[in-house]
Design a binder for these strands. Structure first.
Length: 474
RNA sequence: GGCGCGUUCGUCUAACGGUUAGGACGGAGCCCUCUCAAGGCUUAAAUACGGGUUCGAUUCCCGUACGCGCUACCA
């Protein structure tokens, strides 16, 4: 039997990082089993419709490198893959259940249900179960508003095996007669998910732990239809720092947010993969290929995991270092252009990347942390000035500048040689020249090696900036 | 409230029932060094609690506590 997994998000307008991890695990599991990953859009709640949400979801998935095999835009003979386009199918199945006495029409009004709840009831009181099938059918045909509810067996319990949690048991008398078909004719999640997973021949349902309590209802449905029950794997939740379910309000949750902030997809994927899974040894930096080789559902943990930005930052740096300067260029260039520095050549930007990549944590730092590579310093850091700019610094720098002007070849090595010999002539330590020169050409006191920075900036710029600094700094 | 799931350093986690309970992020310190990073080294820091079972429990069982999830005609 071939492995078929699915990622079935509801189109809320963005891809949640928890969803990203679910999708990733489903993808990895499918990949390593030579299986198929299906993307299915669960848009059965009309009131929650968001324009363009599906497109955004697909784009985020694509960006992350999670390719689905079947889904919107990729037919696989199991479509359509958008639930709002499958309404007739749910209706048919609901009717089948009704006919077989496994479900019933419920005409209770929203008001009655609310009253029921406020009077302390924790489940529906099954009042409409007593209505004879023919009568209910007539009332429904006459247009009386109603829903269809699932008949939960009266007593007994349901035990099932979860791939990550082991055996789980629920007593039937704690299960509600779940609504399957809403008044508007749309199915609820519970009906749609079962009908579709079966129709799409899903073999492994990999989803978040929040679905664990409703799994018994789903299994009952499989049994009522006489279908094979797929395997279930309920993943531990991703948590806020306060341990509640990861949500907006407490930080960024959308994949798009992290992308926009300048995180590499490699880092986000690696990070999220390790929230709930690890290879069992001490390696931590994994590529998508490494993950597909080594991921195993057996090693997925049971406890929720806090989404820790500090660690993500570190991982991003690690992946940044792995990437070549050339690979980083297409990611950095747009940010440079956006800043209005479009006139710099690819070669120049690539050199800047080489000098900065182990000093930045996110891509946007390339544009934010070192503006001096792209424009003249507009001011000079006061603290650095106080610390490193001595009364005699001007004279020393002037002398250095004169020496630099005579350099035929201007690179890190020659600049360093010139600076050190000048320092010697002035009978001062090299540091007494290095720090003021750094301040003069960058405006700040930190950054890459001074000599390499000078090489990238070029002779003309360096000499010009020293001149400007000499005028502006007393 | 009911049901379910979970619980190892602050965080992510490792540990066939036998380890000085390991690693990583973050913290502290040192080294390297023209600054900032990076890197290297060192260090503080955990098995929720109580009972069993066992020669021996982080590990198996029970209970308690705590946390989280679900409890919608939302997914």
């Amino acid at each position: 039997m071939s492995v078929r997994t699915r990622f079935a998000p509801s189109p809320t307008g963005y891809l949640h990082v928890g969803g990203l991890r679910t999708a990733l695990y489903a993808y990895l599991f499918a990949k390593q089993n030579n299986g198929t990953l299906i993307l299915r859009i669960e848009d059965t709640d009309q009131s929650r419709k968001v324009e363009g949400a599906t497109e955004k979801l697909i784009e985020a998935l694509q960006w992350a490198g999670i390719d689905y095999d079947e889904g919107p835009g990729k037919d696989g003979n199991h479509g359509p893959y958008i639930q709002s386009e499958r309404l007739a199918i749910y209706r048919t199945h609901s009717d089948l259940l009704l006919k077989n006495g496994k479900a019933y029409h419920c005409f209770c009004s929203a008001e009655r249900l609310e009253q029921l709840r406020s009077s302390g009831a924790t489940m529906y009181d099954r009042q409409c179960r007593a209505i004879p099938y023919d009568e209910a059918q007539q009332r429904a045909a006459a247009g009386e508003p109603h829903v269809v509810r699932l008949k939960i067996p009266d007593d007994g319990e349901l035990k099932f095996h979860d791939e990550v949690r082991g055996d789980v048991t629920f007593a039937f008398n704690t299960l509600d007669d779940q609504v399957l078909l809403k008044t508007d004719g749309f199915p609820t999640y519970h009906l749609a998910v079962v009908v579709d997973d079966h129709a799409m021949e899903v073999s492994h349902v990999i989803r978040g732990e929040e679905w664990l309590p409703s799994t018994p209802k789903h299994i009952i449905l499989y049994q009522y239809f006489g279908w094979t029950v797929p395997k279930f794997a309920h993943l531990p939740l991703l948590l806020n720092p306060d341990k509640s379910k990861l949500s907006k309000r407490q930080g960024d949750v959308a994949v798009e947010d992290y992308r926009a902030k300048g995180y590499l997809k490699e880092a986000l994927i690696n990070f999220v993969a390790f929230l709930g899974w690890n290879p069992g040894d001490e390696r931590e930096i994994f590529s998508m290929q490494d993950l597909t080789n080594e991921f195993s559902i057996n090693r997925v943990g049971k406890a929720g995991a806090v989404f820790n930005i500090e660690k993500l930052n570190w991982m991003n740096q690690q992946h940044m270092k792995i990437k070549s300067d050339n690979d980083l260029l297409p990611l950095v260039k747009p940010l440079i252009i956006e800043k209005g520095w479009g006139s710099f050549s690819d070669e120049y930007i690539t050199q800047v990347i080489g000098l900065m990549k182990e000093r930045v944590v996110v891509l946007s730092d390339f544009a934010g942390m070192c503006p001096y590579f792209f424009e003249e310093p507009s001011s000079y850091d006061e603290a650095a000035k106080a610390k490193n700019w001595k009364p005699e610094s001007s004279a020393h720098l002037l002398k250095l500048s004169e020496t630099l002007k005579t350099q035929e070849i201007f690179n890190a090595a020659t600049v360093e040689a010139a600076l050190r010999s000048t320092a010697e002539e002035c009978k001062i330590g090299a540091g007494k020249l290095i720090h003021p020169m750094r301040l003069a050409i960058s405006g700040v006191s930190n950054g890459p090696s001074l000599f390499h920075m000078a090489e990238v900036l070029g002779k003309e710029t360096v000499i010009r900036r020293i001149g400007t600094a000499l005028e502006k700094i007393q």
